[in-house]
Amino acid sequence: MATDEKPPRTARTRLAVAGARSSTESVFGARGRGDRLGNRFFLAFLLLGMAMAITGLAAMIIWAIIEGSPRLSMDLITNGPSTLAPETAGYRPAILGSIYVIGGVIALIVPLGVGAAVYLEEFADKTRWWNRLIELNIQNLAGVPSIVFGILGLAFIVRSPLSLGAVPAAGAVTIALLVLPTVIIAAREAIRAVPPSIREGSLALGATQWQTIYRQVLPAAMSGILTGVILAVARAIGEAAPLLLVGAVTFVTSDPSFFGPGFTTLPTQIFDWARRPQEEFQVLAAAGVLIMLALVLVMNSFAVWLRNRFEQKW
């Protein structure tokens, strides 16, 4: 923590000097048409960069629509997979599997994520080493590759001590642990955005700390927390890598159950189709991508809208 104590003044001074030097240079340096032209080019360059970034990602969506839309029909949702009739095969067990997994994820991340965020923001004494450890730990967990969570799921959730086996519940626990840090971080930000004056006002009326949190802080932070949860759920819908390790890629034709073995999800089923060389399966995969994209993009857009709409100005 030694670096944390470095006085910010030196960095500020250095930057201020750099700014002043650059400005002075520009005053005494040549200026005029060349400079203006340079400015224009720079702006054009910036716009080009951003346009390419957005085009690249937009191309992906457009491609999915073009490639997948011919297969878009109710068959896609109501039919099970089939290697014999790819023209009518669908995602029914995969969609059900995804619903089970996501249901489990939501049931886990909302209480655990909000609970952890409330503890860290409202109760934790930052001078205690264990609280700082928890904080650093969450930041780092957010950056652990998803497939590593898959290994955790394989070693501890599918096998002992949890020994759930390769079932949707195991997938739900694995994915929930994966997205939990992002939920905690988002919920903490939302809770931190509630001004201290609200807490003081409530406590000064003789409300207990928990009453203050439950009746004042959490309702005020609700839209921010909801945004974080929706973004996490959207990510959970598209997450495939850890599920490969907890066994969600078996070829399933019957409807799954939450604790029953043999399940697949939308993204893992897409992956399974994409691996097959035949053209029909690739189109089927593209159609699956289309369903998933629609779901994820709608959820993300809703979450971002929700946050911008209800962003409280204190």
Partner: peptide, 18 residues
């Protein structure tokens, strides 16, 4: 922010096929 949430399977298929 919305694009940040595109599932990686979708990008993978896009890379492979397009």
């Amino acid at each position: 922010e919305v694009l940040e949430g595109i599932p990686t399977v979708a990008i993978g298929l896009f890379a492979l096929m397009f």
